[in-house]
Design a protein around this nucleic acid. Sequence first.
DNA 1: GAGTGGTCTAGACCACAAT
DNA 2: TTGTGGTCTAGACCACTCC
Lengths: 235, 235
Amino acid sequence: MSAASPLPAYQRVKRYVLDRIQRGAWQEGDAIPGEEALAREFGVSRMTVNRALRELSDEQIVERVQGSGTYVAQQKYQATLVEIRNIAEEIAARGHRHHSALHTLERCKADEVLARAFGVRTGRRLFHSVVVHFENDRPIQVEDRYVHPDVAPEYLAQDFTSQTPNAYLMRVAPLQGVSFVIEAVPPSSHVAKLLAMSSGEPCLVLRRQTRSMGRVASVAAMWHPASRYQFTGSF
Amino acid sequence: MSAASPLPAYQRVKRYVLDRIQRGAWQEGDAIPGEEALAREFGVSRMTVNRALRELSDEQIVERVQGSGTYVAQQKYQATLVEIRNIAEEIAARGHRHHSALHTLERCKADEVLARAFGVRTGRRLFHSVVVHFENDRPIQVEDRYVHPDVAPEYLAQDFTSQTPNAYLMRVAPLQGVSFVIEAVPPSSHVAKLLAMSSGEPCLVLRRQTRSMGRVASVAAMWHPASRYQFTGSF
DNA sequence: GAGTGGTCTAGACCACAAT
DNA sequence: TTGTGGTCTAGACCACTCC
């Protein structure tokens, strides 16, 4: 049984290298043959081998060092990627109704914690919003967000019942980076009330800091009642 | 102010296209200029433009259709990827000591919940392990795991103080897929005791189901004391 | 200086889509 | 048939590492 359509040459090279690594013939950290050698071996041009090795490098199968060589990458540790989506889309994907209520939209001054998070001096003016998101009329998330005015000067003029703060920020400020924490903590009495939680129930909290235009653009805490919310995913 | 090191040509093309899309000049679904046109415009060869567009395609910024053209991709919804690592490596990365204690290692029978999770009949024999992981001698995770015997027949003969169940399974059974849930729930009294938790404190729980060799290979719950554990990440 | 990867060219032939 | 992307070549020059 021969292949109906012969594999492109760069994919043949990829498969060859992958195979050697998976069989253990080439171990972690080993140097593998150079572009020229592989090109000769396969009877293809160096560009073709280059593409194969570049893609393997993108896939973290090998590591390439200019002036030195190509090496089998260290084995990736097992990692699970959890995808955290925009709350409105997440609810819509479940086939439920989403709406949100604006609770707070104001100027405020950075306290010590916020000043450190944003990398600004204490007392710096910031924007602050608190939006409650509902799934089928039950509160499911309190989004407590601080925004750097330089990144979104018109933040206070937005209608956050028709567009989530998230969606607005994504539109006006290209996202450069994100860091975050998921934790389980007791809610403040204020949050507990907004989420109509029973006493003693913890919150599942996602704290997220986004960077844009070289600054910390936004610091947000998303509070969810633990009895009604989970982060899920698969791959 | 000129660039100290001129950007490679393919990156200049990428930036140009990205810029147009981010400014909204080219909207979702729009066709963008072809390789030949961009090559003329930038005074570079078609291969150089090809690399730029191929990378943008890999990054899901554009979509390329052979015989038709290159189009601006549909906007990705905002998603945050949380990386959940092997507990032993995670602790080591923090510069702390990891060790684990084997609490249970036995045969058991699938109850209704497990049978459904594994897709087997109730009463099917399964393997069961409970391992407690310590960070600097404080318990940080209870790993409660069920394993399909067909996938890892030698499971009960392993020494899980020298190798985590996770690492063992990764080695003997190629991973095909994972699905999981992160939630905050009160611990059972048993788990609370193993983790030396104060009463009333919730657990941050990762439940994970892995598939291998066409079956559900393993169903695990990782219990962490909420006061001492968070999931974190960045990109 | 020799060897390696990083990039680039100016062509080429092919598969496929739109017409 | 024309235009598009997919792949490939046989060179080339450069930056970098290692000896």
